[in-house]
Amino acid sequence: MAGASMKDIKLRIKSVESTMQITKAMELVASSKLRKAKERVEKSRPYFEVLHAALSDIVYSNAEFSSPYIAQRSVKKTCYVVIAGDRGLAGGYNANILKAVAAETQGKEICVLPIGKKALEHFQRSKTQILTERYAMAGDITVSDCFSIAKLLAKGFLAGEYDEIRLAYTNFVSMLSQQPSIIKLLPLQVNRPEPGSAPRGLTLYEPDSETVYNAIVPEYLAGLVYGALCESVASELGARRTAMDAASKNAGEMIDSLSLHYNRARQAAITQEITEIVAGAEA
């Protein structure tokens, strides 16, 4: 910075100050949105817990139960649902999840259902087969969108377009740590009762357990997608908050060092002026 004129330094300070204002504002926005996103997860949780309990109960209570959703097939093609953000400036959030997916899918035949603009752009660039581009905005997706996603996925799975569905999302561990993770959606993993264990209480299923099961599965999938989406949105906001916090701190440090340079330059200019005046008076 040495040698820069006072005016240049002043301009730099001003521009860094305005950047800092933006990063601070983004941090505040992310914090308040994060609170709402967490509330949303908690509100919807009981609904999906009951669904999950019912599904595992059905499988557990009848041994000869079968459903196309739990049938294991040899995996030729996998469908990945990838949830990323719509915008950048969130630290490593988008890069981490896309890297995790790339590491797992290497050399496999896949198709993807991207959620979030960054995911869509990434897979368009890598020319991966994309199921639908309708869900490009992760921020706008509602519960009913999740239901249509689940229906679409279940339909493709039953039609044999792919033999496995996996969901890639970012797990919200804490404010400071977000972990990309990939879980299997279909076929569903089931716990069979041990042969000879005590029978469960009788439950009446109407019209029958398989029909009920197959009707509930898409809703359960929707629940998983929605839950993952909420987690991902919370993670994105958390990552953005941390990134913006760091950016604000860096900007503050930069302003401090720039002010120091500015004051030094100002002092040098004054000293020089005095020397010139004194020299002029002596002459």
């Binding site: 019912a54 109960d57 009788l202 439950t203 009446l204 109407e206 009920v212 509930i216």
Partner: peptide, 8 residues
């Protein structure tokens, strides 16, 4: 006093 029951 309905018996245990599940339906979609």
């Amino acid at each position: 006093r309905h018996c245990d029951y599940i339906t979609a």
